[in-house]
Nucleic acid binder design. Structure first.
Lengths: 338, 338
DNA sequence: CTGAAAGCGCTAACAG
DNA sequence: CTGTTAGCGCTTTCAG
């Protein structure tokens, strides 16, 4: 493995000069530089980023911490799309990305800042964290620059990107209301998810503004899984046959609801309308295709990385980025009033 | 940021002793060790992996190079599932994973070994490479340990994991033959994919063994994309109305074929049977649900990582790992003979 | 059982 | 424009 020392020797200069030449400093004779560059190429030199990172105290590496990335979670590739977005910007900006996956249990073994410091990441992006995950508290205490996806915490060293979940949910429910529905239920995620709290808020606002009563028994948690949503929908629909529409806090759960409806012989959209959330790939392939609130997951990742790098390089105005959502009308909703 | 030096000072020992104590060497007084560990905790110490890597000449880091991971590719989350598998083993074994995404163009800018050496990864996993990608040649020349996904190259420093693509394809086609089909077309990926070559081989073998003639005009390339497959299927089905079954080299392309059939008013499976390959998530959600050859993508990644780490740690017998595939019969095939 | 010293490959004053 | 020197944080001989 050739080092700058080898190059220095061969070029009859000092290592300093080599370092400067290779790093594009101006105060190097152009001839010397050319010679050095040539020798470097000839010797097939690659800089050692470990050594560089050690002395520079930064690694040009970002950490991406994802919670709950396991075999099952590949179903909604939400995480993957975010990752793709992150990866895109990271490689544009010539950073590197190291991937950490963690679970709530693991977070007790090794702290967030331990993880980041050991690896010497310059900053971190956190995705899929729950509101009560240990790491979240640490993020605030630590001074490692960090961007959260879908969790609105802000400080000198932490920013976040998310979508407008209140508005998104509101649009979903308004669409149902405009279609003539009065008894609209909601299958939410769980109380540890920030987005669930916000989407519930949007649901309530939409009802209120339309003069419809909010009924607690119309809202249940589906834990963001297809199976739980199916069970919960089953119970809900049997207990409250007057329900003609459901707003689901995720598309995956909407799939569960559709299954439940099929089992109960409830037709979609004739007897029951459904609006999902996320616009995952699957949603356009189901029969009937799912009406949903789309959010740009790739962009979520891309912006998170952008924000983080801006924070690192000190070129940042705001630590917050809120993305738009969009209602996509497919086949699980229909106009009842007409 | 506290270092072993700080600990040494506070404990009144040398840095050597601290290093040994923290790394679990036996030749250190148990009392001293306890004291050191305690102080380390108190000072909230994290080892600096850069420094360690620099002197040890290994980083306990694996590189995952994926080709063509972009916004579009999130559709089949093949890559993501492989990544999940890799990630799983990597964290079990306490390695780290750095993600590089590359494109054929990018590969001309920075060579494979440059990438690996700069980052000081101990080994690399390559996913999604094409047969003529520049990196592939480099992999062979380089002595960096490397495991390829779905490309059968083997040497002292390189191994691979794949599935039995010949057999997989054969099973698909045999299933069609047993259902009574005689005119079976194939929509393949492209010639730069190893798996395409092998799957074509399996297709031919199955035909031959059944005494059916192989017709060149029945095989076209769909480039592994839904859109191209749709176009190609359209043309194929119009030109050769006698075709009653298509074997598709990927599920994604099978979706395209289904679209084409719908446009042409060809009923599936009554008029046309389809068998896909991969068993991507979507395949069970389409209407009708897709019959396909399943491969365990998570396992592909898991095994790749396992193989690589075994190679690195010198505990390896074979450099090759071949996984099984499984025919999953759903609704796009039906028995014609009955 | 412990410490002193050297060095991994690189960058950054500082001095010429 | 170039070289000398020091040091990033850690591990590892080699002596005690």
């Amino acid at each position: 493995m050739t080092t700058i020392k080898d190059i220095a020797k061969k070029a009859n200069v000092s290592v300093t000069t080599v370092s400067r030449a290779l790093n594009g400093y101006s105060d190097v004779n152009e001839k010397t530089r050319q010679k050095i560059i040539e020798i470097a190429k000839e010797l097939n030199y690659s800089p050692n980023t470990l050594a560089r990172g050690l002395v520079m105290k930064k690694s040009k590496t970002l950490g991406m911490l994802v919670s709950g990335m396991n075999r099952a979670s590949t179903k909604d590739n939400f995480t993957f799309e975010v990752l793709s977005g992150v990866n895109e910007l990271v490689s544009e900006k010539d950073y590197d990305l190291v991937l950490f996956s963690t679970t709530t249990t693991k977070q007790r073994e090794k702290t967030y800042s331990q993880l980041c410091r050991e690896r010497r990441v310059d900053g971190a992006i956190l995705q899929g964290m729950k509101i009560d995950d240990p790491y979240l508290k640490e993020v605030i205490e630590s001074d490692i620059p960090c961007v959260l996806v879908d969790i609105p915490i802000e400080s000198d060293s932490v920013g976040y990107v998310t979508t407008d979940n209140v508005l998104g949910a509101k649009k979903a429910v308004q669409h149902l209301i405009e279609s003539g529905h009065k008894n609209i239920a909601m299958i939410n995620g769980h109380d540890q998810a920030y987005v669930s709290i916000k989407r519930l808020e949007g649901y309530r606002q939409a009802l209120e503004e339309a003069g419809l009563e909010y009924k607690e028994e119309y809202v249940v948690n589906g834990e963001f899984t297809e199976a739980t949503a199916e069970t919960e929908a089953m119970e809900l629909l049997q207990k409250h046959p007057e329900i003609t529409a459901i707003f689901s806090a995720s598309d995956l759960m909407a799939l569960g609801i559709m299954k439940a409806a099929r089992t109960l012989n409830i037709r979609i959209p004739e007897d029951l309308s459904i609006v999902g959330y996320d616009n995952i790939l699957l949603s356009s392939y189901t029969t009937p295709a799912l009406t949903t609130i789309a959010q740009d997951k790739f962009q979520l990742g891309y912006r998170a990385a952008e924000l983080l790098i801006n924070m690192l390089e000190g070129t940042v105005d705001s630590h917050v980025c809120i993305l738009k959502t969009e209602l996509i009308i497919r086949e699980t909703t229909t106009n009842r009033s007409s």
